[in-house]
Amino acid sequence: MNLKQQTPSQTIGPYFAYGLTPIQYGYNFRSWVDNKMSEDANAINIYGKVYDGEGQTINDAMIELWQNDGKNQLFGRYGTGTEENNQFSFTTLKPNSVNKQAPFINVIIFMRGQLLHSYTRIYFSDEDVLNEKDSILQSVSKERRQTLIANKTEKGYEFNIHMQGPDETVFFQI
C-alpha cells in the first residue's frame, strides 16, 4: 500500500486562546465548544492541573476531552489560563462501561513546549471492580496505573496530569 506522508505536527504555541478558546479567554469571537459537555442533572465535574517537570502548574495548556460509550458522544475543550491556580474543569456525563471494560474518557493535551500532542485516559476511582479487570489499565504497571485514575472528591473527580517526574502520567499511542 502506497501511503501518503502524514503532515508533521507542530506546537500549539502560547497564543492559541483567541482562536481555539475565545469566549473562555474573553475575546470577541464565537466559540463552538467549551467545557460544558453536558447539562444533564447527573453530570459530573472533572478538574485538575497540568504540572511540568519542576512541579509547576502549566498556565498555557489546552485540554480536550472526548468520550463515546455508544450512547453519548461528548467533546469538550478548555485552556488552563483562566482559572485560579491554572486549573482546568469540565462538566460531563460519566461514561458507561463498554464491553465490560472500565468507563473512561479520552484526553488530548496540547501546550507550548509540546511539538506533538499527548493522549491519556481518565478512569474513575469509584469503579474499583471494573478497573481491576480492565485490560488496558492492567497492561500498565501497578505503580503507574494510579496516574490514570481520577479521585472522587466532594467537588467531583480530580485528575492531575504530570508531564514528567516520578508521577509522570501514562500517555498512550492510540
Binding site: D52, G53, E54, Q56, I58, M111, R112, G113, Q114, S118, I136, S139, V140, M163, Q164, E168, T169, V170, F171, F172, Q173, I174
Partner: peptide, 12 residues
C-alpha cells in the same frame, strides 16, 4: 525540556 513526556508511550 520540562514539558516533554519522558517515558515510552503505552500502545493501546
Amino acid at each position: 525540556i520540562l514539558r516533554a513526556s519522558s517515558k515510552p508511550l503505552v500502545i493501546t
